[in-house]
């Protein structure tokens, strides 16, 4: 799990977002923010957290995700969570 690259996490996230927001054309970049994705609200965010937890086999805290500014920060946070989980 610790060998997952940033690009792989971004690709996983993109797949998760496309499924949750039911939008196959959605393309994420580091600067993408929640305001740019129509339909992103606190409920969709919970679904994103759960999907990330399952996909990456990690445990996330809702508040940490709430505090992130954009997708780049989210990817960094997921990489840190994956590394932390793999050390355990």
């Amino acid at each position: 799990m610790s060998e997952l690259t940033r690009a792989e996490i971004q690709s996983d996230l993109q797949e998760i977002f496309r499924r949750i927001f039911n939008n196959e054309d959605l393309v994420l970049s580091d600067s993408t923010t929640s305001a740019e994705i129509p339909g992103w609200d606190s409920l969709q965010q919970i679904k994103i957290i759960l999907a990330c937890e399952k996909k990456l086999n990690i445990r996330l805290r809702a508040r940490d995700i709430n505090a992130l500014e954009n997708m780049g920060e989210m990817i960094d946070h997921l990489i840190a969570a994956v590394n932390k989980a793999s050390r355990k």
């Binding site: 606190s42 965010q45 759960l50 809702a62 508040r63 709430n66 505090a67």
Partner: peptide, 21 residues
Amino acid sequence: TRFFTMYCYSPMALAAHRVVD
């Protein structure tokens, strides 16, 4: 709204989703 989302709604909803899952 941010306060209630971060410190009330999200922890509750996430815990409930995990149980349901």
